[in-house]
Simulated assay, not measured.
Amino acid sequence: MLLREFLPGDQEAFCSLQQDQDVGQFMDWLPRTREQAEAAFLDALEQQLMPIRRRFFYAVEVDSIVAGSVGFTLLSGDSADCGWFFRKNFWGKGIGTMAVALLVEDAFAKGISKLKASARSQNIGSIRVAEKCGFQRLGEKNGRVFFEAINSPKM
């Protein structure tokens, strides 16, 4: 498994992932139309070129296939909101846990001290990924479970 920046050649894989009904059932903003997915893809590429970057979106590659996407968006101070989603045929195989663990490591290496995440209450897979990757459950509201991970300095 590889976590990497999106490349121009990933557009079709990115768009099909964002248009997928199975993936969209757990996301408030998915599935997207083709136009919306293409705009999001261009934004992901443009973010890579920004001198001061706010959003970090990564392709999760498994056996040369874009299996999903993980990323974070900087908030105020040194905190960020993060998220992840994967193609259905990669669910339940540990890919999400590995990818999110790498995402957390990347965010903390970039100076983020607090990562926030949430998942729909019925999205047991994402809830388990968050817990396995060190996120602490903060509570539940309006059908969503909220989490945070704190970067504790090593002693």
Results as ranks from 00 to 15, higher is better:
1 M>L: 12
4 R>T: 01
4 R>D: 00
4 R>H: 05
5 E>A: 04
5 E>N: 07
6 F>Y: 09
8 P>Q: 06
10 D>I: 00
12 E>G: 03
13 A>N: 06
14 F>L: 00
14 F>A: 00
14 F>Y: 13
15 C>M: 10
15 C>E: 07
16 S>D: 12
18 Q>T: 00
20 D>L: 02
21 Q>V: 08
22 D>Y: 09
22 D>V: 10
24 G>K: 06
25 Q>G: 14
27 M>L: 14
27 M>P: 03
29 W>Q: 09
30 L>R: 09
31 P>H: 11
33 T>P: 07
35 E>I: 00
36 Q>Y: 08
36 Q>E: 15
37 A>N: 10
37 A>M: 09
37 A>C: 10
39 A>N: 11
40 A>H: 11
40 A>I: 00
41 F>P: 05
41 F>A: 02
42 L>N: 11
44 A>V: 00
44 A>Y: 01
45 L>D: 03
45 L>Y: 02
46 E>A: 15
46 E>R: 14
47 Q>K: 07
50 M>V: 00
52 I>P: 01
53 R>W: 02
53 R>F: 09
55 R>A: 09
55 R>F: 02
57 F>I: 02
57 F>V: 07
63 D>S: 13
63 D>Q: 12
63 D>C: 07
63 D>T: 06
64 S>Q: 14
65 I>V: 15
66 V>A: 02
66 V>M: 05
67 A>H: 12
68 G>N: 04
68 G>T: 01
69 S>W: 01
71 G>L: 02
71 G>N: 07
71 G>V: 03
72 F>H: 02
74 L>F: 03
75 L>M: 14
76 S>A: 11
76 S>R: 12
79 S>H: 05
80 A>D: 01
81 D>G: 10
81 D>S: 13
82 C>G: 09
82 C>D: 04
83 G>Y: 07
83 G>M: 06
85 F>M: 04
86 F>T: 03
86 F>I: 01
87 R>T: 01
87 R>M: 03
87 R>I: 00
91 W>Q: 11
92 G>R: 14
92 G>Q: 13
94 G>V: 07
96 G>Y: 08
96 G>N: 11
97 T>Q: 13
100 V>R: 05
101 A>G: 15
103 L>R: 09
105 E>H: 14
105 E>V: 01
105 E>G: 08
105 E>T: 08
106 D>I: 00
107 A>F: 02
107 A>N: 05
108 F>Y: 10
110 K>P: 01
110 K>Q: 06
113 S>T: 13
114 K>V: 14
115 L>V: 08
119 A>T: 13
120 R>V: 12
121 S>F: 08
124 I>W: 12
125 G>V: 07
125 G>D: 06
126 S>P: 12
126 S>A: 14
127 I>E: 08
127 I>S: 13
127 I>R: 15
128 R>S: 14
128 R>Y: 09
130 A>P: 06
131 E>N: 11
131 E>V: 10
135 F>K: 12
135 F>R: 11
137 R>I: 03
141 K>P: 03
144 R>V: 07
146 F>K: 08
148 E>P: 04
151 N>W: 05
151 N>M: 02
151 N>Y: 09
152 S>H: 13
152 S>D: 04
153 P>Y: 03
155 M>A: 10
